[in-house]
Nucleic acid binder design. Structure first.
Lengths: 115, 115
DNA sequence: TAAGATGTTCGATAGTTCTCGAACGATTCA
DNA sequence: TGAATCGTTCGAGAACTATCGAACATCTTA
């Protein structure tokens, strides 16, 4: 119903974006959503309690990385590529490319947190 | 004397890099060092207690963003551009460019932290 | 050797963040 | 209406981070 709280394009801050993506779980989420075009929280392929996942989605949303559209009972997420590319040209691609270059497969079978 | 603890090129992790740069103070530091080529902790232009500054330099060092060479009593920092570009091509430039695009001038007159 | 300069390390405090179960809300479907 | 689905929010505990003064270490120079 009420639109998820997210910044306008001009309010997206570099710090928040970098911070949001500094978590392996979240960068995987963005990577998956980006590859799939759109994705519900459910089919993100990352196994973890709902509340934890919801937390990560919230961070991504509030940082301006994703937007969420509600469709029935599902929340469909998409990467705000246009906004991000407008605000920080090349940044998102560089990060996603780096994530792939790092060789770590997107996480699917549970958590693997380290920092 | 003892070399500052820092990761080898292949051990630089995306998460650490993004996390390190998710702090406005640290991204300014990297920006300044990058512009200047090299810089001691002293002349970084950011006013803040020595211990705080040292903490930020440590984070940058441990994430692989900078390396520190000791010369007399001064610790001279430089950005590990070659290593970073080899490991994550285009990433550092994209971030520095984004930092400039954000319009926030590098911090000089004291702290201005917000996140 | 003593004093000064430059940074690091330690210890403490305050604020954040992550994680996860439990409760809640909204929507769909029988 | 009742049950199921899909997510969010709440609350609490553990872990981490930033900040900063004080103490320490190292090198230089008087």
């Amino acid at each position: 119903m009420r639109a998820a709280k997210q910044p306008f394009r001009d309010q997206i801050s570099l710090s928040s974006v970098l911070y949001a993506l500094s978590d392996p779980v979240r960068v995987d989420l963005v990577r998956n959503i980006s590859d799939a075009g759109e994705q519900s929280c459910n089919e993100c392929g990352i196994e973890m309690p709902k509340s934890s996942l919801s937390h990560h989605f919230k961070v991504l949303r509030e940082s301006g990385l994703i937007s969420t559209r509600i469709e029935g009972t599902r929340h469909i997420n998409s990467v705000r590529s246009a906004d991000l590319n407008a605000r920080f040209p090349g940044l998102l691609n560089a990060i996603l490319k780096a994530a792939r270059a790092e060789g770590r497969e997107p996480q699917i079978f549970g958590v693997q947190k380290m920092r």
